[in-house]
Design a protein around this nucleic acid. Structure first.
Lengths: 228, 228
DNA sequence: AAAGAAACCGGCAAGAGTGCCTGTTTTGCC
DNA sequence: GGCAAAACAGGCACTCTTGCCGGTTTCTTT
């Protein structure tokens, strides 16, 4: 059941690259180098920002030639688009791996707290750093935005949809669940970006406040589930 | 009293450019073009991101020559540093202007809500967009980070310090005040960046939740002021 | 095995950006 | 009026990146 959920969510976010595992060796090799290129691109993105994501550096990093790079991704934006797909997929996979491990056998009441902590961990990953870079770059780059926003909305839709599907017993509290989710997502993104300024200590206090707010909403929803 | 606070805060964040108003016409003209260049640079930053902040485009935008540009800012990073200073100053000024206008004659209980709303407005400005761009770019650009972080910390220190200075009657609740401040700052930054994905409606719900949390903390602190 | 396709290589021209440098104009001081 | 200094103009050389293209190697198919 849990694995089914994971499978469904991952499949919904699967990049076109990884859709079909081909049997021909040539194509398989092609897929492998494509993935290597995208991985290197993510490294570039994290280390040097969206501006540093150049086809040249990515090719150099993987040891591939510029020709091979251009064969797989004709333009820089093609590469960026592939990176967007992969980053969302990897974020989903990373979170699910961590979350499903820590949630095993937890009580209903602890669920929100466990989820929140898992989410905070996910925010501190390399994949999330890449995601932030893309999200911000998309604000001032129309071409990137046209690739990024649909992917982000799909991620959101899969996330919310699966959340609803997975907890049918909370039907009356779905709106609250969605709100809690949005709240945690936004608060943690802001927290990550402000971390260098406010420092670990204050960040931990804010994180505790976020957890308290989530708990408060959860308690409220549990009490008033039939009044809404 | 209120104007004194405003003056103190602004003075503490005043860029070196604007420190002294010179009487010589030549220097005054120099300051004016410097400011014009920085303003154009902020436009670049907002419209095209940190990567699009080039000395060339900025010079072109103001009608100045590349020589003039180079005279005022020898390197791109010199320009970026000036932009950092100005952006923080402008953010401070913009918020104070708005806030001091809306807070006039408000009751203590309404203060947090008014502040929160003023802060959300400030987050939606052009200056804040520039700030976000710098904050994210500083994550992957060491040179920029060395300019940005100290300025950000100074902004934070001035903010917190003045908050404490302005509300001596809340001495026992200072820690809570600081927490509330950090919470509002982080939550709203995350909210802004997630706005394109979650949309206005959900963002408004999150915003209401933030306000509720702030109110809750305020009520708590008011009740247990002497227990802490 | 031979043709065709797919993956891969590396060079070319064009464009943008940077830092530096030499002049030219405008202003300030005596 | 004249000299020094500051503000401003624009050229030069260099680097980096992009997109494209002709050629080569490595499968795949028949």
């Amino acid at each position: 059941m849990a694995t089914t959920m994971q499978q469904r969510m991952l499949e919904a976010m699967l990049p076109a690259d990884l859709a079909a595992e081909p049997e021909r060796w040539q194509q398989r090799k092609s897929v492998r180098t494509r993935i290597r290129l995208v991985e290197a691109a993510i490294d570039c993105l994290v280390e040097e920002g969206y501006a540093g994501l150049s086809t040249q550096k990515v090719a150099e990093r993987t040891g591939a030639s510029r020709g091979a790079m251009h064969h797989h991704f004709a333009t820089r934006m093609d590469l960026a688009a592939a990176v967007v797909e992969h980053v969302f997929y990897r974020r989903m996979r990373g979170f699910l791996d961590d979350y499903l491990g820590s949630v095993a056998g937890a009580r209903d009441e602890a669920l929100f707290e466990i989820s929140t902590e898992a989410y905070w961990r996910s925010v501190q990953t390399r994949d999330y750093a890449a995601y932030v870079e893309l999200a911000v770059a998309a604000r001032s780059d129309g071409d990137l935005e046209r690739v990024f926003l649909p992917a982000a909305r799909r991620f959101d839709a899969v996330w919310i949809g699966e959340m609803i599907e997975s907890f049918p017993q909370w039907q009356a509290r779905w709106e609250t669940m969605k709100l809690v989710n949005d709240f945690v997502v936004t608060a943690h993104m802001g927290l990550l970006l402000n971390l260098p300024v406010i420092g670990e200590r204050r960040a931990a206090l804010v994180r505790r406040l976020v957890a308290r707010t989530v708990a408060m909403l959860h308690a409220e929803a549990a009490a008033g589930a039939f009044e809404v």
